[in-house]
Amino acid sequence: MPTSFFGWVVFFCKKYGVFFLRGAGNTLLISIISTILGFIIGLAVAVVRTVPIDEHDTKFRRIFYKVVQGIFVAYIEIFRGTPMIVQAMVIYYGSAELWGLDLSPFAAALLIVSVNTGAYMAEIARGGIISIDKGQTEAAQSIGMTHWQTMTTVILPQAIRNILPSIGNEFVVNIKDTSVLNVISVTELFFMSKSAAGTYMKYFEVFFITCVIYFVLTFTVTRLLLVIEKKIDGPDSFIIHGSQTTPEGIIEGIEEK
């Protein structure tokens, strides 16, 4: 048996390396899929919540949107207002007890984290949408675009770009918060660490390793997201189209015709 702190760290790395990696892999997988699914849920909720309704719409339409929006508000409030660790217990055991659903811990994990992330994303996306200048919508409408076309071609691309940092935030939070899923025995990084530590009663050494792994995961993800942001923004300069020797007068558009 090792005698020093680092001795134990090396011991655990050697003996449980694959164990840690599998845990980290699951953590990463759950947080990637759930962040993406949560983003899609959030975006859909936000788009519906920002549909403009006024007294000129038909009664049916107004009532329909009122009801749907009410449901969405309830969803957001409930999932933001309760801890994910509790949601995990309620959904995992509740789905078994109420509907006899036999969800695997992994599937339950995806469901819980996605729906939870969706609630936060819905508000993030709504913020992104309403932050886009009203003039963009008016310009799109003034050339005859429908609300849907306006959203997909003009508003959402800008809104999504603007909320990318917040999406990255959610991703990082998810990597860390999947650790609470150990309560329903999901074999993510925290669960794996706890098992390893329990075997030798060496909590500090094991969780030191766990800590480093979590940090490497989140740090890599934030760097990657920065690269993606840069990529979406495109180059700062643009290429002049056509001849560069064209006289200035023609550029100004006054001498033609």
């Binding site: 003039g135 008016e138 310009a139 799109a140 409408q141 003034s142 050339i143 005859g144 429908t146 770009r161």
Partner: peptide, 22 residues
């Protein structure tokens, strides 16, 4: 309304070009 608007264009004081497009 959309067909009508496509026939009646509008130029705004604040330009309102679509910022995400070239």
């Amino acid at each position: 309304l959309t067909e009508y608007r496509s026939k009646v264009g509008m130029v705004f004081q604040s330009f309102n070009l679509f910022n995400n497009l070239s």
